[in-house]
Amino acid sequence: MATAILGKKVGMTRYYDAEGKNVPVTVIQAGPCFVSQVKTVETDGYEAIQIAFEDIKARNSTFQLIGHDAKAGLGSKRFHREVRLGEGEAAGYEPGQEIGVEAFDAVKYVDVIGTSKGKGTQGPMKRHGFAGQEASHGVERKHRSPGSVGGRSSNLGTGKPKKGIRMAGRMGNERVTVRSIEVIGVDKEKGLLLVKGPVPGANKGLVMVREATRLYKRKAKNA
């Protein structure tokens, strides 16, 4: 069964494990989420659930969303996200059903999806990891420039650079998935999820946590 939950990034701290090792952890205030819609093959052609997170005042929602949430017997919610399910799994869910952090009790590795911090316009070195030009040997005022974007022939004789050439521009503020990060702890009382290492986005940002879809060999052995 696909396990997923929405939450907010609280911040980072450290955690000493049983061996006394210092582990960096991100605290996520996860859930409680509610199933706001169940999609089945009959109704939608595929199986999925939509989960809703965080109460808001009805006046801050829209009529469409208020009606949508009310259909599942819920008050207005701020965030709605869909989680795809395998065949026959949708039968296990009902609209209005609560999903809490308990769902992650037995989960060892998770994927965390968030929106990265916006960095504004950035050069190609920071944005794409280009090497830039040399510091000396005759390089003048072009130390961080991208270099060539192609010649006449490589550009297919169009006189324009190829589509998709990596250049300077807006960086960050996009959906980022961090895969296979370890779950360090689950605090059912407070609804907290502790995961190892950093998570995309600023504090208080929305994150979606789901059971890891693919694992590296070493981690698969532990799981």
């Binding site: 609280v10 911040g11 701290t13 955690y15 605290v27 605090d187 407070k190 907290l192 502790l194 208080k204």
Partner: peptide, 14 residues
Amino acid sequence: MSQDIIAAVQASQL
């Protein structure tokens, strides 16, 4: 609020 949550997480380890 977030500082309180972090403090609570840390409290058990102090």
